[in-house]
């Protein structure tokens, strides 16, 4: 593959992935950052889903009484 972008710093994609011998460090740092950032976003979403899920289950259980309460 030899895609040439205007201003692409590396000669080839292979060189881009090699990062001039520093691949482990660069990709390691970016990889860990990606994992942490995805976790930061996913964690509240999962928690939100579980809260709403639990509420829904409670609602199912006592739909009648809750209807009265919310009046």
């Amino acid at each position: 593959m030899n895609i040439q972008f205007d201003g692409f710093y590396f000669e080839s994609l292979a060189e881009f992935f090699a990062m001039g011998g520093h691949a482990t460090y660069v990709w390691g740092a970016y990889g860990v950052a990606l994992v942490v950032m995805v976790w930061l976003v996913v964690r509240p979403l999962l928690r939100r889903a579980s809260i709403l899920n639990e509420l829904r289950q409670n609602l199912k259980k006592r739909q009648h009484s809750l209807y009265e309460e919310s009046r």
């Binding site: 881009f16 001039g20 011998g21 740092a29």
Partner: peptide, 25 residues
């Protein structure tokens, strides 16, 4: 930002490509 920093910015004269970690750090 990531693409620009990783692929388009020139490398550092002394540190080579490892300086690209700066864009996260």
């Amino acid at each position: 930002g990531t693409l620009w920093g990783l692929a388009f910015a020139p490398e550092d004269a002394r540190q080579g490509n490892s300086f690209r970690i700066i864009y996260i750090h």
